[in-house]
Nucleic acid binder design. Structure first.
Length: 489
DNA sequence: CTAGGGTTAG
C-alpha cells in the first residue's frame, strides 16, 4: 500500500513528459488487470485528471463486476464523451445487465451524443441477448443512414443480432453486403443457422467459407459442430470433429468435446457420449456432464441421469438449476419422495433458481412475463385468455403433463404452477394482441419445458399461427403442430 | 503518447 503510493508519487512527478498521460497509462494497466484498488489509490492521489482517467475507472470497476461503483464514476464524470458512454454500456453487457445497457444507449442519444461503431457494436450485443429485434433494426437503419462502414466486428455483431432475434434472412443480407469477410463474419452466420436448426445451410456456408480461402478457427468449429448437433447430423459432425486436428492442424478444445457429447447424446448414443467424456484429454467441466444429462432426459435414461444429476449437484451445490434437474429425473422415474427430498435440500441450503421469464415485443415495447406472477398490468385479462385457450386445447385432447412437475404440491396446485409458466402467458398475450396470421415471437431466459413445448405445437395448429420461440440456447419454430427442433432440445 | 467493440458447447 505505502509502496504503491510511493511508486505512484514517482509516476506523477516524473511522468513520461506529461503527468496525466503517465497516470492514465498506469490507471489502464491497473483497470485491465483487475487491480481496481490500486487504480483507485492513484486516482485519488493525483492533482490532475482528465476524461481518460475517469473512463478507465469506470472500465476497471465494471470489469471486476462492481457495477454500482462503475456507475458512480460514470455519473460523476465531468464532460462525458462517446467513450464514457460506451464503457458503461459494455460494462453492463459484460455484467449481464442488458436492459440497463439499452436504456443507457437511449439516454446517451437524448444527451445529444452521437453513437459511433464501437457504441453500436456493444449495444447490438445487448439486443442479441434480449432478442430485441426492433432496437436492433433501428441500429441497422442508423448505420445505413449515417454511412458508418460495417467493419468485421460490427458486421459480426449485426449478423449475430439478426440471427439471435430470429431474422436469418436479414443476417444473410448483412453478410453479403459486408466487403471484408473475415472468419468471424462467417462464424456468426454459421452459428445463426445452427441455432435455427438449419444444419444443412450451416454446412453449405462452412464449405463456401473454405472455398473463399478463409480458414476456420476454434470458434468456427464450435459453431459448425453445434449446427450438426442441433440438426442431428451425426456423421457430418463426427467427420468434422476428426478433421479439426487432422486437416486443420488445430487442437480440439473442451468446447468441441462438449459439442460432440451433445451431438452423440441428442442422437441417442449415450454410451458413446459417455465414452468420449471419459477419454477427454482435459478434465470435463460441468457443462459437458450437463450435455449428457440433457441427453438422458431426452432419451429417458433415468438410471444414468440420476447418476450424473447427483454428481453435478455435488460439484456445484450453489447452482439451483442442478437440483431442479435432478429432482425432475427422480420424478420421471416415479421416485416422488426423492424428487421432493432434492427440492427440500435445495431450499435448506438456501439455493435459489432463476425464475422463468418470457418476453414478447409488440410495437417496439418489450412485455415481460415472470412465471407464476401477475406482474403484468393486464394480468387478469391474460389469465382469462389463457383459460379459454386451455379449454380449447382440452377439447383437442390435451392434458397438462403433471408428472413432469417435481414439486411437493397436490394436483391442483401443480396444474396452477404449470399453467403459469411464463411462455404460456406470453403466448396468451401474443394471441390477444396480434392480428391472425402474424408470427408470434417469444424469447425465454431458460429452457422451454416439455409441457409448454407440447402446448405450443398444438396452438400453432389450432390457431393457425407460426410461433417462434427462442429459449436459452436455440430457436423453436412452431408451425402446423410441429417444431423445427424435432422434439430434441 | 493514455480510455470503449463482436462471434464460442449446456
Amino acid at each position: 500500500m505505502e509502496e504503491t503510493k510511493q511508486i505512484h508519487a514517482h509516476v506523477i512527478k516524473f511522468g513520461f513528459g506529461s503527468e496525466v498521460y503517465a497516470v492514465n497509462s498506469l490507471l489502464h494497466v491497473y483497470a485491465s488487470s483487475g487491480s481496481i484498488e490500486a487504480a483507485r489509490l492513484l486516482f485519488d492521489q493525483v492533482a490532475e485528471r482528465d476524461i481518460v482517467s475517469w473512463n478507465s475507472m469506470v472500465d476497471g470497476y465494471a470489469k471486476c463486476g462492481k457495477m454500482e461503483a462503475a456507475y458512480e464514476f460514470f455519473k460523476n464524470t465531468p464532460t462525458k464523451n462517446v467513450i464514457s458512454w460506451t464503457t458503461m454500456i459494455s460494462g453492463y453487457v459484460g455484467a449481464g445487465m442488458y436492459k440497463e445497457a439499452l436504456d443507457l444507449f437511449q439516454e446517451m442519444q437524448l444527451e445529444g451524443v452521437e453513437p459511433d461503431k464501437v457504441a453500436l457494436a456493444s449495444t447490438l450485443s445487448a439486443c442479441s441477448y434480449l432478442g430485441a429485434l426492433d432496437q436492433g433494426r433501428w441500429i441497422h437503419a442508423y448505420i445505413d443512414k449515417t454511412g458508418i462502414v460495417i467493419d468485421p466486428i460490427l458486421g459480426c455483431a449485426l449478423i449475430d443480432m439478426f440471427a439471435k432475434c430470429g431474422d436469418m434472412e436479414e443476417a444473410l443480407r448483412v453478410f453479403k453486403k459486408v466487403k471484408k469477410r473475415e472468419v468471424s463474419l462467417w462464424t456468426s452466420l454459421i452459428y445463426g443457422f445452427a441455432i435455427h436448426g438449419r444444419g444443412g445451410e450451416a454446412l453449405d456456408w462452412f464449405e463456401n467459407m473454405q472455398k473463399a480461402g478463409i480458414k476456420p478457427n476454434h470458434v468456427t468449429f464450435t459453431a459448425i459442430l453445434t449446427a450438426c448437433s442441433y440438426s442431428g447430423l451425426v456423421d457430418e459432425g463426427k467427420s468434422l470433429f476428426e478433421s479439426i486436428e487432422r486437416v486443420h492442424k488445430l487442437r480440439p478444445r473442451i468446447e468441441h468435446y462438449g459439442c460432440m457429447v451433445d451431438l452423440l447424446g441428442r442422437a441417442g448414443f449415450l454410451e458413446e457420449a459417455k465414452g468420449l467424456i471419459e477419454q477427454m484429454p482435459v478434465k470435463p467441466k460441468a457443462v459437458v456432464w450437463g450435455a449428457l444429462l440433457n441427453a438422458c432426459r431426452i432419451h429417458k435414461n433415468v438410471e444414468l441421469g440420476i447418476k450424473i444429476g447427483k454428481l453435478l449437484v455435488e460439484e456445484d451445490p450453489d447452482h439451483g438449476g442442478r437440483y431442479v434437474h435432478l429432482a425432475s429425473i427422480h420424478a420421471a422415474a416415479g421416485e416422488w419422495e426423492r424428487a421432493v427430498e432434492t427440492r427440500r435440500q435445495m431450499k435448506e441450503r438456501g439455493v435459489s433458481k432463476l425464475p422463468g421469464c418470457s418476453a414478447i415485443s409488440l410495437d417496439g415495447v418489450i412485455h415481460e412475463f415472470l412465471a407464476g406472477t401477475k406482474s403484468h398490468p393486464q394480468a387478469k385479462q391474460i389469465y382469462r385468455a389463457w383459460d379459454s385457450i386451455a379449454e380449447r386445447l382440452e377439447k383437442e385432447g390435451y392434458k397438462p403433463a403433471l408428472q413432469n412437475l417435481l414439486l411437493d404440491l397436490d394436483d391442483e396446485a401443480k396444474e396452477m404452477a404449470i399453467t403459469q409458466h411464463s411462455e404460456k402467458l406470453a403466448i396468451a398475450f401474443g394471441l390477444l394482441r396480434t392480428k391472425p396470421g402474424t408470427t408470434i415471437r417469444i424469447v425465454k431466459n431458460l429452457r422451454i419445458c416439455e409441457d409448454c413445448h407440447t402446448v405450443t405445437k398444438l396452438i400453432s395448429k389450432i390457431y393457425d399461427r407460426e410461433i417462434v420461440m427462442r429459449d436459452r440456447t436455440r430457436f423453436h419454430h412452431f408451425k402446423d403442430g410441429k417444431c423445427t427442433c424435432g422434439d430434441k432440445w
